[in-house]
Amino acid sequence: MYVIDHRNPDTAPDRQHKGICVLVEAALSSMVAARSGPVPARVDDWVRELTEALMAESETLHLRVVAALRASGVGGDELFERYVPDAARLLGEYWVQDRASFVEVTVGTGRLQRLIRERGEAGHGTPDRTVPLGQSVLMVVPRFEDHSLGAFVAADQFRRHGIWVHVAIGLGGAELSQQVMSRRYAMIGLTGGSLKVLEELAGLVDALRTDARPSVPIVLGGCVVALTREAGRITGVDHAVSSVREAIARCGLVTVAGALSSGAA
Rank of each mutant, 00 (worst) to 15 (best):
Q135H: 04
G76C: 09
T51Y: 07
G92C: 05
S148W: 08
F152C: 10
P127W: 01
P127C: 06
L50R: 10
A88K: 04
R129C: 03
D86M: 15
G110N: 05
Q97F: 07
S148T: 09
G150S: 08
G110R: 02
R114Q: 13
V47Q: 12
T109M: 15
G120H: 06
L149R: 08
A87F: 09
E121K: 04
R82K: 10
E145Y: 03
A56G: 02
Q113E: 10
S136K: 01
G76A: 09
E118Y: 03
A68T: 00
L138Y: 05
P127E: 02
Q97W: 06
R114L: 15
T126V: 15
P132L: 07
R99E: 07
Y94Q: 08
R89M: 14
V84D: 06
L79F: 00
L91Y: 04
V140T: 05
P132M: 06
T51H: 00
H124A: 12
E81L: 09
A100V: 04
L61T: 01
E57Q: 15
T126G: 15
L63Y: 14
D98R: 09
L54V: 13
T109V: 14
V47T: 12
L61P: 00
R117V: 00
E57T: 14
A56N: 03
H62C: 12
E57F: 14
H62P: 12
E145C: 13
Y83C: 13
D86I: 00
V131S: 08
R143P: 01
E118T: 04
Y83K: 08
G75M: 10
G108K: 00
R143W: 00
F144D: 03
V74K: 07
E78Y: 02
A67E: 14
G110W: 01
R111C: 01
E104P: 15
L115Y: 05
Y83T: 02
R99Q: 10
G108P: 13
T51L: 04
F102M: 05
A122I: 00
A87S: 13
P142T: 09
Q113C: 11
T126M: 15
G108D: 13
V65Y: 14
L69I: 14
D98W: 01
L69H: 12
M55N: 11
V105T: 09
H147E: 04
D156Y: 03
R82N: 10
L54D: 13
D128C: 12
F80R: 01
V105C: 11
V96Y: 11
H62D: 13
R117W: 12
A155S: 11
V103C: 06
Q113A: 12
G92I: 02
T130D: 04
L138K: 05
F152G: 00
Y94V: 06
L63G: 11
T106Q: 10
G125E: 11
G75S: 12
V153I: 14
R111V: 00
G123M: 08
V105L: 10
L50C: 01
E118G: 07
G92F: 04
T126P: 11
A154Q: 04
Q113G: 11
V140W: 06
Q135N: 01
L115G: 10
G123D: 01
M139D: 08
